[in-house]
Structure formats: C-alpha cells, structure tokens
Nucleic acid binder design. Structure first.
Length: 599
DNA sequence: ATATCCTGTCATTAT
DNA sequence: ATATAATGACAGGAT
C-alpha cells in the first residue's frame, strides 16, 4: 500500500483516471514495476483467480495480463495497450506536485456540430483515424484562436500547483504534447452549467494534449471542485463502462438533435470553458458555476447523470475532499481502510498476513480480491454479501468498482446475466437473483459470514470461528462444505487453466517439432543435391583421368571397365570395374595383374 | 435438436 | 490426522 500511496502522490493515478475516462485502460501496475503487483487487478477483473498461481501468466497473457481465450474484448484490450504504449513512448509527464488538476476543454465547430453529433454513433474511430498526427496542441489553447474544421477537439489541461507556484511553468506552457483528442461526441453543459459528457468512450484512439498551465488561479470556482481525482479512477471507469453500455444499447439516443446542435454550436475555447476532467464525473454531479455555462449552453445530455445516479455516485462531489486528503499518507491510510474505493479493493493482493480479525476491512478487502477471480458469479454476489452481512461496511462502491474495473465480460454462466445496464428494477432484484446455492444456504442457516469470508479466511481463523461462535452441527457442516466447495472451485479453475496451458504448450511443441522436421527435410534434400553434384563431378573427373590413361593394348581406359579410388594414404588407385561372376577366376587374375602393373 | 463449451461440484488421491 | 491442492468425472446451463 505504501507504493500505491507513493504513486498517488506522483500523480500517475490521476493520469490513469484521465486516460481511463477517454477509454484508455491504463496499466498502473506496469509503472509500479512489480512494487505493487496486486494493482494488476484493475485490469484483470473477475478472472484474477489465476493470478494466485504464477504459472498461469505463461499462457493467455498479454504483457502479463490474463486474457480469456474467448474474450470478445480483445480488440479493446489490444487497442488500449497499444495506446498506452504510444503514450509511454512519448515520455512520462512529470508532475512535481502531489496535487494535479486536469481540465478538459472542448470545442465544437459550428459547421460540423450536427455532423459530429451523428458521428458519435460509430464514426468516432474513422474520424479519429483521419486526425493528423502530431498536431500542435497549442492551437487549441484558449488564446490561440478558433479551431478550424475539427469540431471535436479536446484539450486536457493539467495543472500542477507547486509547479506554477514556483514559476516553473508559465501559462499554457506545453509540457508534453501527446496528441489532440477528437471526441466522437461533444461535451456539453446543462443549463445549470453542470458538465454533460456525450463522448463515446468506446473510442479507442483518443489523442490527448497535455498542457501545463497556471490558469487555476483564473478558475477559482473550478479549482476547488475539480482537483486531484485520486482514487476516483474507479468511479470514472464505472462511468465509462456505463456510458459504453448505454451508447451501445441505444446508439443515438443521447445525441443532441439538430436543433440542439445549433444551440451547442461553435464553442470557442475560453478560460472559463475549462472543465475539470479530473473531476469527472465529480464535476458532473456538482454544479459547475464557472463562466462557461453560457458559452456552452444547450446540448444537455442527462445520460451521464443517469449513469451517476445508477452508480450511486451522488456523493462524489464531496469526494473531492477525500481525494485531496488521499495525498496525505496518513489520511490515505484511513481512506484505504474505510473507503470502498481503495486501491486494494481491486488489487487482488495476497491476504494480509497480519490480518486475523474477521472484521478487518483491509483483510477482507484483500482476501476478497485474492479470490475475486474464482468466480465471476460468486464474485459480485459475494461482494453483495459483504454489504449485507459482513460486519464491515463495504460500501456499494466496492461492488461497482469490482464490476466495472474488470475487462468487459462477458456473461455470467448459468445465470444468463450479461454486463449491460440494468434498470432500477433490475438492479433492485440483482442481489436476490445472483445468490449462489451456498449463499442461500448460508443465509438460511443464519451464518454471520459471507461465502467469500468463509472460503478465504485462514484456516486457523476458520477453526477459531467454528469453535467460538457456538454454531450448531449443521452450521459447522455447512461452513466446512462452503469452504471446501469454494476452495475446490478455485482449484478447479486453476486446474483447468493449467490443463489449457499444457495443451497449448504441447501444441506449440508440435508446431516446433514440425518446423524442425521440415527444416531437416530441406537439409536432407539439399545434401542429396550436393552429393549428386559432387558425384557427377567425380564421374567427370574419373572420365577425364581414364581418358588419359592407356591399357597394355594401347587402348584408352573407359569408366565402364575401370574406376578411380582414393586410398587411405591419399594415393589414387585405378580399380578395374567388377565383372559379372561369369568371368570367374580369370577375371580375378586379370585384376591382380593389372594391379601389379599399376603399382 | 444437438454438439460443444463452461462452470460448479463431488470423489479421490497427493502433498 | 487434518487441511488443502490437484484432478478426473459428471451434471447442468449457455451458446
């Protein structure tokens, strides 16, 4: 956790949030260089059970990330990884301050406004692909004039307080011009000024411009609200996922109609238009009172607010203070322990060795994460268990965090539940519908522990629980069965993964051996050709030599009667060709005579 | 309707 | 002796 906190202060978490907001999954773990490997869970998602056995990383991995062989989101994953590598290749922005503010500035060209609204249906990547690379992002600065043609330019402005305080940077100074980001959908504000984002987060190739500016002093109303996002990256991902699902389901539903597009037309970038990207979705839930409300006008999209409401993020406006406090290591400690947004909640790290108290939230969190992958089904359900049964108050955010931080799955086998937006009624019935058999049994037997708790608690603790809680025989049996089944389920998953690894390894071995066989056959054919050529040369040479020799009768020697052999001593010997047996002993005598003559 | 795959579970054995 | 891991086999649901 110390490493994570250190990372917090380095601002890279904030960078992760920024990238995740625009659809780029950021691998924090890779930056940590193994210091805090459990952070890999941010991307691993519910399949993280395999991380408990290191050998699983040998297969179905992409840069160390487990990839389900049938994962339909591989394209997304690869694209995200590619983009991340691209960003990395441009260098790591240094944020000397522990506080980092990000401002998302958006401009929609008047002429293209309507088209851009339509383009958010699915043309985002095409437009993105046509965006010229290496565009000078300074042209998007508020004082750089109006944007020509490209209606969906977004400038992300990063502010680092101490940097500006020390005068290390001047206004609008370009720190690291990654790319410009053309959003498929413009961002708008509602009449009250709150930010509304219609951006298609499925867009996989956004390009960012990182600018450093000291305009924070110019936006006092924003700086207080939209400061460091800190641990808010999980809600951001939640929002992103929701946006994706919503847009995917009802493409165009959230689009601004043509007449609204006119209202949301050309929006020159003004200092007041800078909206806190880091505060998203926080800025979305807290009224933005900056001077941009009039300039942005119209184009209200309530979708984001719907998402936020569904996510239970209404209180995130107050989260800013928590997030700021996260910069304090001590406060961060408390935050990690008490907040469902703690990094460890998604880390999948090993169980804390010192956590023997069942009511220890950190222990529970870690253990949960350690077993998060053992079942996507149990995963979400068991987390729900905690919210209802566990003495620890794991907030709803834990559940959301887990669900949305994982790679977009897939399906819940046996349940037919897919990851898609649920209506309020559906979500209300989610808990009841997803209870596993063991969970139902445990609830029926009034066991005070969730299935995950029962499965993941250390054996000493489990035995102590069995002894100290005065359980009935039936309850003890059920506890043992739940623990056995849970562990066996995880073991079965590992076993199957291992089997697949073995199969894959054998297939690779077969391919390798086939390639080796092909290579050897080619070498054999080549050798045969060489031998044939050499033989022909020898024959030619033999004919040439024999033609220069004469027998006792003065006749030239012919290859059909004589041959040349190279002896062990290097001397060339003329050897008469073997005659058929009919020649009998006379032939042998002739040979001997000729040999004698030759020598 | 059928085949195939995935996952949970049980039984058994190994550690 | 006990707990747990590993694994084959089976069942049931999903695709």
């Amino acid at each position: 956790m110390q490493f994570a906190k250190k990372y917090f202060t380095d601002g890279l978490i904030q960078l992760t949030i920024l990238l995740s907001l625009i659809g780029v999954r950021v691998d924090i773990d890779s930056y940590l260089n193994g210091y805090y490997s459990p952070l890999i869970e941010i991307n691993l998602g519910p399949s993280s059970a395999y991380t408990q056995t290191p050998f699983h990383s040998l297969r179905d991995t992409l840069d160390g990330y487990s990839v389900h062989p049938k994962c339909p989101e591989l394209d997304y994953f690869f694209a995200s990884r590619r983009l991340l590598d691209e960003v990395r290749s441009l260098g790591s922005p240094r944020f000397p301050s522990p506080q980092l503010n990000a401002w998302l500035v958006h401009q929609v060209h008047q002429a293209d406004c309507g088209q851009k609204s339509d383009s958010s249906n699915g043309d985002a990547e095409e437009e993105d692909s046509t965006e010229p690379e290496g565009r000078d992002v300074r042209e998007h600065l508020p004082d750089s004039g109006q944007e020509e043609g490209d209606s969906s330019q977004v400038v992300v402005v990063l502010e680092t307080g101490p940097c500006c305080d020390t005068g290390a940077c001047d206004g609008s100074k370009l720190v690291n011009p990654f790319h410009t980001l053309p959003l498929a959908s413009p961002m708008t504000t509602n009449p009250s000024g709150a930010l509304s984002c219609r951006a298609s987060f499925t867009q996989l190739c956004p390009r960012l411009s990182w600018l450093e500016t000291d305009r924070q002093r110019d936006r006092p109303g924003l700086s207080g609200q939209c400061s460091s996002a800190g641990a808010g990256h999980r809600p951001v991902q939640c929002l992103q996922r929701r946006c994706e699902s919503r847009e995917h389901q009802s493409a165009g539903r959230h689009h601004v109609p043509a007449h609204n597009g006119a209202a949301a037309e050309h929006r020159p970038i003004l200092p007041g238009l800078a909206l806190g990207l880091a505060a998203l979705p926080f800025a979305s839930v807290c009224n933005y009172t900056g001077s941009s409300s009039q300039g942005l006008g119209g184009g209200l999209d309530e979708a984001v607010f719907d998402h936020i409401n569904q996510l239970g993020l209404e209180g995130l406006d107050s989260m800013d203070q928590q997030l700021l406090s996260c910069l304090d290591p001590q406060l961060l400690e408390d935050f990690d322990s008490d907040s469902g947004l703690s990094l460890e909640s998604s880390s999948g790290g090993p169980a804390s060795p010192g956590s023997s108290d069942m009511s220890s939230s950190s222990s529970l969190c870690e253990e949960e994460c350690g077993a998060t992958g053992y079942s996507s089904e149990v995963d979400s359900k068991s987390l729900l268990d905690h919210t209802s049964w566990s003495p620890v108050d794991l907030s709803e955010n834990v559940w959301h965090d887990h669900s949305y931080a994982s790679p977009p799955p897939l399906t819940y086998p046996h349940k037919g539940i897919k990851e898609e937006p649920l209506s309020d009624e559906e979500e209300c019935g989610l808990e009841e519908r997803e209870l596993s058999r063991d969970e139902v049994r445990a609830r029926a037997m009034c066991l005070p522990f969730s299935v995950l708790q029962i499965v993941n608690m250390p054996v000493e603790e489990f035995l102590e629980v069995l002894d100290s809680h005065g359980f009935s025989a039936e309850q003890v049996t059920l506890l043992r069965d739940i623990r056995r089944r849970g562990k066996n389920k995880l073991a079965a998953q590992n076993c199957r993964k291992r089997k697949l690894d073995a199969i894959t390894g054998l297939q690779e071995e077969v391919a390798r051996l086939q390639a080796q066989r092909d290579r050897l056959l080619r070498e054999k054919r080549l050798t045969a050709k060489t031998m044939c050529a050499v033989g022909q040369q020898i024959q030619q040479l033999t004919r040439d030599v024999l033609s220069r020799l004469r027998d006792p009768l003065g006749q030239p020697l012919t290859p059909d009667r004589y041959s040349l052999q190279c002896g062990a001593n290097g001397r060339v010997v003329l050897v008469p060709a073997r005659r058929p047996a009919v020649s009998g002993a006379s032939g042998n005598k002739t040979d001997k005579r000729k040999k004698g003559k030759k020598q």
